[in-house]
Design a binder for these strands. Structure first.
Length: 257
DNA sequence: ATCCGTGTAGGCGCGACGGA
DNA sequence: TCCGTCGCGCCTACACGGAT
């Protein structure tokens, strides 16, 4: 465990998603994608800004679907780089349909323009990325209201329940589950809100679960929001403000441990 | 009787792969 | 080129067993 944490700190410059600050705490995944388009500066999200906050939810939703995480990352990069991060755009049916039509072309184009993260497999933008964006756009005012309410009340359980109840943010008509802590973690890391508890900020996804098994860290079976939050809490107890990053990175760090 | 944590099976949409 | 099949990673449904 200590060796893994040390490997994370030692290799922070080699692995794109390990963004640490001077105190070796995690700055968040969206603080720097380490992907740049056409040689411009690296893509980042500034979660104080509305468009970027919207993209954070898009990223989480895309990542909630099956497939390699790079797909969700590059989809977000695509939207950001082509200024398709405005909520209103996704309320326009014709626009959405057009985007859906050219999803294969868009995926291959963006990958040819980008440098940085090398995807393990071919990048593809699933159809339901787009339908989820429509859901997010329609629900956007309510989502923001719930989020600000949570911060005001210093109580995030209600927000978590709400966002996990919206159909169509997971694969197909399913709900978003596993990546809800990602949203909270990114907001916490960027200090957008002051009262997000760290114990709700660790993502027990497939990679993380596999690592836990290998390291002998017990996690409950993940099949409900409640079990996700309990798993998150266990991970936070182990790694604190490095969150799930060491566990996620394990596969990429193995040879350095 | 009910609740809750746990484990398991199966569905879905995708890419990869291989044979015709 | 066109299938069929497989593996992947997520979500859902459900069954089981212990506690209250």
């Amino acid at each position: 465990m200590e060796k893994l944490i040390k490997a994370v700190i030692d290799n922070q410059n080699k692995i794109p998603y390990i963004n640490l600050n001077g105190l070796n705490a995690y700055k968040g995944w969206t603080a720097d994608f380490h992907i740049s388009v056409c040689g411009k500066e690296s893509i980042r999200l500034n979660l104080e800004e509305e468009e970027d906050l919207f993209l954070l939810f898009v990223l989480a939703s895309a990542w909630s679907k099956t497939g390699p995480w790079e797909n969700a990352a590059y989809f977000t990069v695509y939207l950001k780089a082509s200024n398709k991060d405005k909520v209103e755009l996704w309320l326009d049916e014709a626009f959405v349909e057009e985007e859906k039509q050219k999803r294969k072309k868009a995926a291959s184009e963006i990958i040819s323009q980008c440098t940085g993260v090398i995807p393990r497999k071919k990048i593809s933008f699933r159809q339901d990325y787009y339908t989820s964006m429509v859901v997010l756009a329609k629900e956007w005012e309510h989502i923001k209201a719930q989020l600000y309410q949570a911060e005001k009340n210093k109580e995030y359980d209600t927000f978590i329940q709400y966002i996990s109840s919206v159909s169509g943010l997971g694969a197909g008509q399913n709900k978003m589950r596993i990546k809800i802590p990602l949203i909270l973690r990114e907001l916490r890391c960027q200090n957008v809100f002051q009262h997000i508890p760290g114990k709700y900020c660790c993502v027990p996804d497939e990679r993380v679960k596999v690592t836990c098994k290998e390291l002998g860290i017990y996690l409950p079976t993940i099949n409900s929001i409640k079990s996700i939050l309990r798993a998150s809490e266990i991970i936070y107890d182990h790694f604190g403000d490095l969150y799930d990053i060491p566990l996620f990175a394990y596969e990429d760090l193995k040879e350095n441990i």
